[in-house]
Computed example of a mutant assay.
Amino acid sequence: MIDDDDSARHSLEFLLDCAGIRVRGFASADAFLAAAPPVDGACVVTDVRMPGTNGMELVAVLRERGASVPVIVITGHADVPLAIQAIKAGVADFIEKPFDDEAMLGAIRQALASQAGTADARAERQAIEARIASLSAREREVLDGLVAGKANKAIAYDLSISARTVEVYRANAMMKMQAKTLSDLVRMATIAKFG
C-alpha cells in the first residue's frame, strides 16, 4: 500500500488487516522502490498523486524492472485521460477515492488470484520444460511427430526407423514427461511451446 496521505494509508492497511490480507505500507513510491520488497504473489496498491515518483511512474518503473506484479491505482482526482493512461500502462484496476471497502477488497483479491494463477502457470511451464530437456534427441523427434498429429508409422517413415522403435521412444517420452495419455503429452508440449 503506497499513499502519502497517512490517514488514507492507515485506513486501508486496517481494512486489509481485518480482511486477513497481509499488508505493508509506504508513504511514497520512492520509499517502496528503495525498500524493494519481494512482490511475488503480491499486489501493489498505489495512489497516483504523490511527491517524488508518482503512481503512474511507479507502474512504469516496475514494468522496466520486469516485475509482473498487479498494480491497483487509486486516486482522488480521477479523469478520463488518467484512467486511459492507467489502463494502457497495464494496471489491474483503477479506483476513485473515496472507494467502497468491498470494491477495494474485491479488486485486491482478484489481483492476488490472477497473480497466483500466473505463478502457477509459470511453475508448470518450467516443470514441463525441464522434462522436455530430459528427453533424448530421438525421443524429442518422436514427440514432435506426435504433437504434429502423425501416426507412429508416419513418424517411423520420417525418421527411417521401425514403427516398433517409435513405440519404444513414445513410451519413454511419456514416462519422462509424466504423461498418462497422448493428449496429456500434446498439452504439455503445447504449454512449453506457446506458454
Score class of each variant (00 low, 15 high):
Arg109Glu: 00
Glu129Lys: 07
Val147Trp: 08
Glu141Gly: 15
Gly117Cys: 04
Ile108Asp: 10
Ile95Thr: 14
Ala86Asp: 12
Ile108Glu: 08
Asp158Ser: 11
Arg131Trp: 02
Tyr157Ala: 11
Ile128Ser: 14
Tyr157Ser: 14
Pro98Gly: 08
Val147Arg: 11
Val168Asp: 12
Ala154Gly: 09
Leu135Asp: 13
Met104Leu: 00
Ala163Gly: 10
Arg140Ala: 08
Thr118Phe: 03
Ile84Ala: 07
Arg122Asp: 15
Ser160Cys: 04
Ile95Leu: 11
Arg131Ala: 13
Val168Arg: 12
Gly117Val: 00
Leu82Tyr: 09
Asp93Gly: 03
Ala89His: 02
Arg131Tyr: 03
Ala130Phe: 01
Ala119Ile: 12
Ala137Ser: 14
Arg125Trp: 04
Ser162Asn: 01
Ala130Lys: 07
Gly149Asn: 08
Val91Ala: 04
Gln115Lys: 04
Ala171Gly: 02
Val91Lys: 02
Leu159Gly: 04
Val147Phe: 01
Ile84Ser: 10
Thr118Ala: 09
Asp79Ser: 09
Ile161Asp: 11
Gly106Ile: 02
Phe94Met: 12
Ile108Lys: 04
Glu96Asp: 15
Gln85Phe: 01
Arg170Tyr: 10
Ala119Glu: 15
Asp120Trp: 00
Met104Ala: 01
Gly145Glu: 10
Glu96Lys: 14
Leu112Asn: 03
Leu135Ile: 10
Ala163Glu: 07
Lys97Gly: 14
Lys97Ile: 12
Tyr157Thr: 13
Lys97Ser: 14
Ser160Gly: 05
Ala83His: 03
Leu159Thr: 04
Arg109Ala: 00
Arg170Val: 10
Arg140Met: 08
Ala163Arg: 10
Thr165Glu: 11
Ala92Trp: 00
Ala113Thr: 05
Asp158Arg: 09
Lys97Val: 13
Phe94Ile: 04
Ala123Asp: 12
Asp93Phe: 00
Ala111Asp: 11
Val147Gln: 13
Val168Trp: 04
Phe99Glu: 12
Val80Ile: 09
Leu82Phe: 03
Ile108Gln: 09
Phe99Lys: 06
Lys97His: 13
Glu102Cys: 02
Ile161Val: 11
Leu159Pro: 04
Leu159Ser: 03
Glu96His: 14
Leu112Trp: 01
Glu139Pro: 13
Ser136Tyr: 00
Ser136Asp: 01
Thr165Gly: 06
Glu129Arg: 06
Lys153Gln: 10
Leu112Ile: 00
Ala116Thr: 10
Asp100Pro: 04
Gly149Ser: 05
Asp100Ser: 10
Arg122Phe: 09
Val168Tyr: 07
Asp100Ile: 02
Val168Gly: 06
Gly117Ser: 10
Ala127Asp: 13
Phe94Gly: 10
Ile132Leu: 14
Asn152His: 07
Gly149Gln: 05
Gly145Met: 06
Gly145Asn: 11
